[in-house]
Design a protein around this nucleic acid. Structure first.
Length: 722
DNA sequence: AATATTCCCGTTTTT
DNA sequence: CGGGAATATT
């Protein structure tokens, strides 16, 4: 071992706490890192990866898997910065699977040049599948069927496996649609996002030789955000490390907020059971938030049952009390938040350090208007991504047709874009004619014939066919070149050439697309058009949700995961909104909603403000709201409640944490008053060794129990009441 | 084929 | 109420 080697190892261990060090140093065997919010997880993961590359295996034998491209990019950058891990594979689950399927297409029984269908493509195909089954898309909305099929795929249930297990007519119908959809996908030589995972999972399960090969290729596997894995990803993870068990999973059950997308919290909760020799490391020290913010968040999440206990703590300053503000209505809430932000901006806080979170996007509107009125710059981090823009998808559709002639979803997307006089009737006839001859639509179009059966449109179709034929050689060219060729030859550029504000952004986006392709191929000399299309299909964000620092950030609680801000506002803490409930009778997963709230709170470094409106303007009408039960779960002594209308917010009781002086007069039946919940009656008093617990039934309905020291209750005599 | 009108529906959305 | 999609109109 050279001295430079040991110096580098020492560097990797520098400035780490004991548990962090332990996680970095662990090499062989399963490792579970339970990482609380702001606990330096990324640092640990990257150092660990570097440490492995330095001491255990060549970097190319290490595989780090993330969920998002952003996470992959960040991890890659940070690992690169340590400059010991060149050649390491750092990518998303989907990218890994796409690559594996491309390489092992024969064994996986997929076409080598398969197209990856995004949600839009999938919807179109699904619509067709529903129609093919003679069903109406009104009764069988593509969206709901999509959800059912996606769930099935996430659970590794193929169309064939799905059909025999249907329990009612609805499921049986979905099974039919599912089968038809799969047939259509195959005809299009396409895979959807879920297929990528499912195919690889099943492949690893069934093809031992390949699994063996991959296990030798990737000797150490790291999976980030393990709490978000679904059944397919879980199987992939297990199969990838079957022999060596060198799996390092990092995550936090308390931050699992994608259950509705198929994520299965059980995967992380039962990790130690699945991998019996697991070493568990808990990262519990928080470097982000103040003591008071952390304490409140911790108190909230303590209400969950399905978790792994963590003792969050911090050496950071105490900080100001987190506040709960109750406004009369949603406009005042928005105005209040804007006013508060305005005040902070006059202080030292930079706008980029401030964020407003909400459960549903529709809440952003009121806040936006209020910020506008206050003249505060802001940005809404929303999901409209670059690669979902129409003009971008049109260009990509041309490329897709070139690469994969079976891709009819793409073909029908571009057949009349730019407008070339091929309408619905022509399309119908064309499909029919092609079907009659037993050739694909593309073969038909690009064949050398007169298209007499298409009447007036025959010339247009022939021209389109010629265009496609002339574009074919572009397949062999480099992505950026092919892209430029398509944009100009198809008339798409011309289409956006007329001067005008609307076309301006389209033109810019097309240029941006060529830029992206140029950048892509710059560090991938071997990259083909197929590779670029795959990249484009799987990279949807393009740095869109970066904190630019120029303005206040508005986003959903989901989007906030992984970020941090000095000052955080969470609005709309109302029953049914957070926790969200679709309708009154069907309750959602309240624990997941609580985690969502926890995630939001723990984004705050210094100042946390929760708010709620007593009346909310929703869908055209104003409705009375009920305070979120989550607010009642916050230790009353640890937050500052105030109604902004009040001149002075009520200060904290100085004696919080102490038992009431008149405790000897407290019995079952004693009347008490709570600053928020009002009048109530003691149901029970339990003297514990350390704490005295009290159950109270409130006049207003709710029943609560507390440690009496923190209950914020005052005893009232009977005659004081009315 | 482009534009007007009606109608429907309404969480979150890593890929 | 308001956006998007399906449908009607020119």
């Amino acid at each position: 071992m050279t001295s430079s080697h040991s110096t580098r190892v020492a560097e990797l261990l520098a400035e780490l706490t004991e548990p962090q060090r332990e996680a970095v140093l662990h090499t062989d065997g399963p490792l579970l890192v339970i990482a609380g919010p702001g606990s330096g997880k990324t640092r640990v993961v990257t150092r660990r990866a570097a440490h492995l590359a330095l001491t255990a295996a060549p970097a190319r034998q290490i595989l780090a898997i993330t969920f998002t491209n952003k996470a992959a990019r960040e991890m890659r950058e940070r690992i690169d910065a340590l400059s010991v891990a060149e050649g390491m594979t750092v990518c998303t689950f989907h990218a890994l699977c796409a690559k594996l399927l491309r390489i092992h297409h024969e064994r996986a029984r997929v076409p080598r040049n398969f197209t990856i269908f995004d949600r839009d493509d999938r919807r179109r195909l699904l619509k067709q599948a529903i129609e093919d089954c003679q069903l109406s898309t009104t009764n069988w909305s593509p969206a709901s069927v999509e959800g059912a099929i996606s769930t099935a795929k996430n659970d590794l249930r193929s169309a064939r496996a799905f059909a025999p297990h249907t329990r009612d007519w609805r499921e049986a119908t979905i099974a039919r649609i599912y089968e038809r959809y799969e047939t259509l996908l195959a005809e299009n030589a396409a895979l959807d996002f879920d297929d990528l995972l499912m195919r690889v999972a099943l492949l690893l399960r069934d093809d031992e030789a390949l699994r063996d090969e991959l296990e030798d290729r990737y000797r150490y596997v790291l999976i980030d955000e393990y709490q978000d894995t679904n059944a397919a990803q879980y199987l992939i993870a297990r199969k990838l490390v079957e022999k060596r068990q060198n799996l390092c999973a990092t995550g936090d059950p308390d931050q699992s907020i994608y259950g509705w997308r198929g994520a299965n919290l059980e995967n992380i909760l039962s990790f130690e059971h699945d991998f019996p020799s697991t070493r568990v490391v808990r990262l519990e020290q928080n470097y982000r938030s103040t003591q008071r913010i952390l304490a409140v968040a911790d108190a909230l999440i303590a209400g969950n049952r399905r978790r792994k206990l963590k003792a969050l703590w911090t050496q950071n300053e105490e900080g100001p009390w987190p506040r709960v503000l109750q406004y009369d209505n949603s406009e005042e809430e928005a105005a209040g938040v804007a006013r508060d932000i305005s005040q902070r901006l006059r202080g030292r806080t930079a706008p980029g350090g401030i964020a407003v979170f909400y459960r549903v996007n529709s809440l952003s509107r009121a806040v936006e208007e209020a910020l506008l009125r206050e003249g505060i710059k802001y940005q809404v981090a929303r999901g409209v991504e670059f690669y979902n823009r129409k003009e971008v998808k049109d260009v990509l559709a041309y490329l897709r047709v070139l690469v994969n002639p079976a891709d009819e979803v793409a073909l029908f997307r571009i057949i009349n874009t730019p407008a070339r006089g091929i309408g619905d009737t022509t399309l119908e006839r064309l499909r029919e004619a092609a079907g009659l001859e037993g050739v694909t639509a593309l073969e038909f179009i690009t064949s050398d014939r007169d298209f007499a059966e298409l009447g007036r449109a025959a010339v247009k179709v022939r021209q389109f066919g010629e265009l496609l034929r002339s574009l074919r050689p572009a397949v062999e060219q480099r992505p950026a070149t092919a892209l430029g060729e398509v944009i100009s030859r198809t008339g798409l550029r011309a289409m956006y050439m007329q001067e005008g504000d609307r076309e301006e952004s389209e033109r810019r986006n097309l240029d941006e697309l060529i830029n992206a392709a140029t950048l892509f191929q710059a560090d991938r000399p071997e990259a083909t058009l197929i590779d670029w299309l795959e990249y484009a299909a799987l990279v949807s964000d393009v740095d869109s949700v970066e904190q630019s620092g120029a303005g206040v950030t508005l986003m959903t609680l989901h989007a906030a995961k992984g970020l941090e801000f000095d000052v955080v506002y969470i609005i709309g803490l109302e029953d049914g909104l957070l926790p969200f409930r679709r309708d009154e009778f069907v309750r959602g997963d309240e624990e997941e909603e609580r985690r969502l709230c926890f995630v939001g709170m723990t984004r705050a470094r210094k100042v946390l403000t929760l708010s709620r409106a007593r009346q909310r303007f929703v869908r055209g009408s104003t409705l009375a709201t009920v305070r979120s039960p989550f607010l009642d779960e916050l230790p009353p002594a640890a937050v500052e409640w105030s109604t902004p209308a009040d001149a002075a917010p009520q200060r904290k009781r100085a004696d919080a944490g102490r038992l009431p002086e008149d405790l000897d007069q407290w019995t079952v039946g004693t009347l008490v008053r709570h600053p928020v919940l009002g009048l109530g009656q003691v149901l029970s008093l339990t003297r514990g060794g350390k704490r005295t617990h009290v159950d109270v039934q409130f006049q207003s309905g709710p029943k609560r129990s507390w440690a009496l020291e923190f209950a914020d209750l005052v005893r009232v005599d009977f005659d004081e009441v009315e």
